[in-house]
Simulated scan of single mutants.
Amino acid sequence: MRLRRLAFNARYLNRGLRKLGFITYGNDDSPVVPLLLFHPGKMAVFSRMMRTRATPIVVVVVAAAHTKEDVDEVLRACDEIGDLLDLKQASGERWPVEEIIKRAVELVRMPEMP
């Protein structure tokens, strides 16, 4: 029952936002619904206004101002913690994190991965 409710709510939120005129991204069934705002100056205001409603709604605002080095650091951290917690469950070819970082352009240009 909980999984059905989660699936319904995810699809309902995603499609409801689109019908309101927003642009969302990602899979309709994902419980994470990226809402594209396009106005960096309004992102913090949107987050603050959502949080200060009678029933606070917490949103995560992500601005695309990261450098490749920032992403490299996130990959290194995920690699280390993923090993410690045994979180790497996907099948398929694996590359060491430094290989991924070295071959970033090649990786980005590869055809879609399964």
Score class of each variant (00 low, 15 high):
residue 102 K to F: 03
residue 88 K to R: 12
residue 47 S to F: 00
residue 102 K to V: 04
residue 99 E to W: 08
residue 55 T to Q: 12
residue 36 L to V: 15
residue 79 D to K: 05
residue 71 V to I: 15
residue 8 F to D: 06
residue 8 F to K: 03
residue 84 L to Y: 09
residue 17 L to W: 06
residue 76 R to M: 08
residue 100 I to Y: 09
residue 79 D to G: 10
residue 60 V to S: 08
residue 43 M to Q: 10
residue 113 M to T: 10
residue 28 D to Y: 06
residue 109 R to K: 13
residue 103 R to N: 15
residue 68 K to F: 06
residue 110 M to K: 15
residue 60 V to F: 06
residue 75 L to R: 10
residue 72 D to P: 00
residue 74 V to D: 05
residue 20 L to I: 00
residue 3 L to F: 10
residue 42 K to P: 00
residue 18 R to Y: 01
residue 19 K to S: 09
residue 2 R to H: 09
residue 30 S to W: 01
residue 39 H to C: 09
residue 35 L to A: 03
residue 67 T to Q: 07
residue 8 F to V: 01
residue 2 R to V: 11
residue 1 M to D: 08
residue 52 T to S: 14
residue 42 K to R: 14
residue 21 G to R: 07
residue 7 A to F: 02
residue 114 P to N: 05
residue 23 I to K: 10
residue 29 D to G: 09
residue 107 L to H: 13
residue 57 I to R: 11
residue 50 M to D: 00
residue 47 S to V: 11
residue 8 F to C: 01
residue 67 T to C: 09
residue 20 L to W: 03
residue 56 P to S: 05
residue 21 G to T: 09
residue 107 L to E: 12
residue 110 M to Y: 07
residue 107 L to R: 14
residue 34 P to Q: 06
residue 35 L to R: 03
residue 30 S to P: 05
residue 42 K to E: 15
residue 101 I to Y: 08
residue 26 G to P: 03
residue 69 E to K: 15
residue 60 V to M: 04
residue 15 R to W: 00
residue 85 L to G: 00
residue 93 E to Y: 05
residue 87 L to S: 12
residue 17 L to C: 05
